[in-house]
Amino acid sequence: MTDKTLKRYIIIIAVIVVLTAAGNMIYASYQVIPELLFTEINDEFVFNEVFDEKLTISYITNNRDTRRLESISFDGLETSQLIRQTGYFGGFFYTSDTNDNPYNDIIGRYYTLKSGYIDLHLTETDIDLLEENGSLTFGTGTAMMSDGTAMPVSFGRITIHTIEHWDEYRLREGGGGSNDHFTVDFKTEKPIHITSLDLSTFEPHKDAIDMKLTVDYDKVYTYDELIIRTEPILVSRNFQMAYTAVEPDISSQWRFNMISMDMTYEKDDESYNSWIYYPFYGTGMDEPTVEEYVEFWRAQNE
């Protein structure tokens, strides 16, 4: 090989490597998210003498963003809720011995899924308000980060009921879900008429999820039928809402969680409100699921 040939080889190799690296860096720079993303929380609790409810707050940051969530001031609650960095489940503190990842964050190629834990604390003022209204709902507020920055947040909806309110208004029997399927069951002692169902939160996911409303184990309504329906739906005993991912085995729990439907029904000529939700806290999201979530957020916001 002559010097000239060697020089040519070197230049070609160097140019290809530099162009490839530059292309990769440009592509990676487009993946950066402009702000921290919180996954949604939708859940209901009953307030009793031993109120020991916990919330798991999950949020997605760019990998270079090392901030952690320290506290949240919820609109509607008197005091800030402090964040624990380690989970306490089943009697064991969930920690990791890995120095590089002490909080067991899910670290992907672009993003990190972090979690924090709240032991819900209600002040006397909060409890008085709860008992006066029968329920207390919150979901928006201000998050304080470890570097001192504050940011407005909107999680979803968390409702605390008194026992009496829960017993009087509750229709929800129970529910369960997996990666690609979710069902929630509702039961009524007396016949009711569902007069309205807010499908707006389902609409962005309608191509990825199939919806099925089954009434009294008999009538089945799909999304396309419900969106055009104007007459009330008679429920004699029970109904079930089911979501199924169009592509099986695709982790769709984050989609189920973002679907929060307000429902209005009539019973004995009186109007009541309820809602259909899925309490998934974002933990268990793996790298592809986190990226899918970010891609969805971009489509909705950019």
Partner: peptide, 15 residues
């Protein structure tokens, strides 16, 4: 050279 080119995609490879 080929190895280096492949390695340069590591920035965008899943973990």
């Amino acid at each position: 050279g080929l190895s280096l080119i492949v390695m340069s995609f590591s920035l965008n490879m899943p973990k």
